[in-house]
Write a protein that binds this DNA or RNA. Sequence first.
DNA 1: AAAAAAC
Length: 505
Amino acid sequence: MADGGKPPTPEKKSWADVEEEEEAKAKAAAAAEAASSSSSNEPAVDAQAKQIEALSLSVPEEHGGSGGGGDDQGPPLLDDSDESQIQAVTSGGTVYESAAAFEDLKLTPELLKGLHDEMGFSRPSKIQAVTLPMILTPPYKDLIAQAHNGSGKTTCFVLGMLSRVDPNRKVTQAICICPTRELAQQNKSVLMRMGKFTGITCACAIPPAQKDYVPIAKMPKITDQVVIGTSGTLMKWINHKKILTNDIKILVFDEADHMLAEDGFRSDSERIMRDIQRSAGGCQVLLFSATFNERVKDFVTRVIKDGNQIFVKKEELTLEKVKQYKVQVPDERAKIAVIKDKIFEFGQKVGQVIIFVRTKQSTKDVHNALTLEDYVCSSIQGSLDQSEREKIIQEFKNGYTKVLISTDVLARGFDQAQVNLVINYDMPIKFGTRDEPDYEVYLHRIGRAGRFGRKGAVFNLLCGETDNTVMRKIETYFQHNVPEVRNWQSEEDFERALKDAGLVE
DNA sequence: AAAAAAC
């Protein structure tokens, strides 16, 4: 790609510079993107970058058995099929060897104990085998890593943070930024478990529940070695010197494409990034996500110029084990009928269900409609009080509630092994458009089912021509044919679909 | 015509 007009900058380009460039480019890109649904551009690869190997990253065989309260599933068992490929590109002269065992990574005995005894992992998943050496080997290069939903990305960056922290120094040395409070809490909980025997402490930087509110001035300084949080609160704590940034060695962006998208959290992320890099030079940056659309990929590869990169083609991104279906329904009322009379009839016996809707109001409407029919469910969205959010998530994670209605607050990252059914009550649409799908959100939503290679099913409820257009575009984009449940009134049709998905006998 | 974060 032409990159001609950039000024000669001897230093590493700052994020602000890249953003300016980005803006200039955006107009041209916007036009191109309209027609880009069939584009199959290769990622722009740095001329100096050397491709080391093309690795197969495929979803593991199911081995967790049915249900079981534990969320301590063993590691994905990755076969060597060519179903899906990831491309690893290294920068500079460092050579990395994929880690066949956690023991190959020079981890402390405490961390190995955490991985084996607490997490129940016996060996690294594919993405872990590839990225962990990149993360843990000096000179600690930055990393952009894309891998499938539920393939074990969290372990990659949590282990990265834990091993780069000096447990003897009671200062913040690692920061992780997430798009939602739920994800921040979930990541903290994974880190606490994995680091159980290390003595490393972690703070969650999210706004407190109302009852726990204290003015920032009265808040004590953070001494935890790891801080995981959402952008607003992290910024606030940094600005008020509650977090000192000069000893930070590693900065992680979870759901990085969203954290760095123009219509996502880019400006917040850049500000935090700048603050940290100003006071802690040479801080390692890790970007992780299951999705990087061409536009974001282009941006992040220019921001993280000197890092290692791993990408997956979008055609390879849908999970084999999660069967997608489309269902034509005449109206909204029929959607409720389908959910309760057809899908729940079988689906609820199987595991837990998440129903995605477009607006906060819709969570309430659908919740009410199902409650009227005597179905027990709960619903969540970002305007609920923090304590309420936590309660609903806790109840769902404990398995007390089987059906959760949600906005896209839970579209990304939410990890609950027992969820094997996802219903798109509303299809995800790009903001400001009528029938342009949000491909990334779609992929993240369906990725809530089929964690770590488990079986799952997705029902897309389509009402009207617009929904059909959206669905068609999604099929084209991922080059994945989505079969139709012929008759929304036919119990047999749904039963067959769930059988094909392997969810009912 | 929005979800998220946060003021």
